[in-house]
């Protein structure tokens, strides 16, 4: 026993050091630099010197932009979260016994995940186009309301969120499908013998047993949504009249840090994003006690 234990520990330490080293170099060190930068002033050429709370003050003095961006981000995250029940229903349908072409459908739903967000955004831009868009053509044919979906401040954020739901669907489906595999057939059969219909079985048996997967998917979905930038950047463009009302917090970060070259203020916004993400995730973990069943 004794001679074996020591080499094991050494190996464990060596193998752990590799990812830990990566964590320090690529995560903790940049994080520390970001914190320092947020208290600094200067430009890339003159170098940055720590001066105090000036950047934080600036952020909260011109707080309107930040608040609006925070609200937009949370609204976006909430809408994309609606994609989770949608993914559940589709996962359950794909899980039905005897379904033909199961892998075809799974591939179909997974395609958006492996497609570049830029390409997805470009295609949806055409769909949403106010003058020649596919969506307006269809709505026009059935007498529905047409508009410039991503150029109208009233709809732009929601239109982008729909794409967000669609893009996240594939990942959500994979995780939920794996969760479904773990639901014991026997319970379903018992419920069936008790006379429960498919909907009742789904709601009373499948969903409660699936809650750990649902929880995981929800947390990942919210974290991803809080960092949304690429869809907005490409689908709206810089002279879009809806932009001012649709900016997310990461978009604001991009503008300050890379368009206006105000890296210290960008650092402040990045840290605010981090804190908000941590807080929202903490709330989710706190709430899970009320609804997640660990069998």
């Amino acid at each position: 026993m004794r001679p074996n234990r020591y080499p094991d520990n050494a190996w464990a330490a060596i193998l752990l050091a590799v990812p830990f080293g990566g964590l320090v170099i690529f995560y903790l060190w940049p994080l520390l630099r970001t914190v320092l930068l947020s208290f600094s002033e200067g430009t890339a050429f003159t170098g940055y010197t720590i001066t105090g709370l000036g950047n934080w003050q600036r952020l909260f003095e011109n707080g309107d932009d930040v608040w609006r961006a925070l609200v937009n981000t949370l609204v976006y995250a909430a809408i994309v979260l609606l994609g989770v029940p949608i993914a559940m229903v589709i996962a359950a349908l794909l899980h039905q016994r005897g379904l033909r072409g199961r892998s075809f459908y799974r591939t179909l739903y997974f395609v958006p995940v492996v497609t570049m967000p830029v390409a997805v955004a470009m295609v949806w831009r055409y769909i949403y186009n106010g003058d020649f868009g596919l969506l307006n053509e269809v709505l026009d044919a059935v007498g529905g309301p047409t508009r410039a979906w991503v150029a109208d401040p009233d709809t732009a954020l929601y239109a982008v969120a729909v794409v967000g739901i669609w893009m996240a669907l594939g990942t959500n489906l994979i995780i939920l499908a794996a969760g479904l595999e773990a639901v014991p057939q026997t319970l379903e059969e018992a419920a069936m013998l008790d006379g429960a219909g498919p909907v009742r079985r789904f709601l009373s048996v499948t969903v409660p047993l699936l809650t750990p997967s649902i929880f995981l998917v929800s947390v990942l979905s919210v974290i991803g949504s809080l960092q949304m930038f690429d869809l907005l950047f490409i689908m709206l463009g810089r002279t879009n009249p809806a932009l001012a009302d649709s900016k997310t917090i990461v978009y604001l970060f991009y503008e300050e840090a890379f368009v206006r070259n105000d890296r210290p203020l960008g650092a402040v916004i990045a840290l605010v994003t981090l804190v908000v993400t941590l807080a929202v995730t903490a709330v989710q973990f706190r709430l899970q006690r009320r609804w997640v069943t660990y069998a």
Partner: peptide, 11 residues
């Protein structure tokens, strides 16, 4: 001229 919305959709 088309509107600003239109130019946002199609440059």
């Amino acid at each position: 001229s088309p509107t600003l919305e239109s130019f946002a959709d199609t440059e």
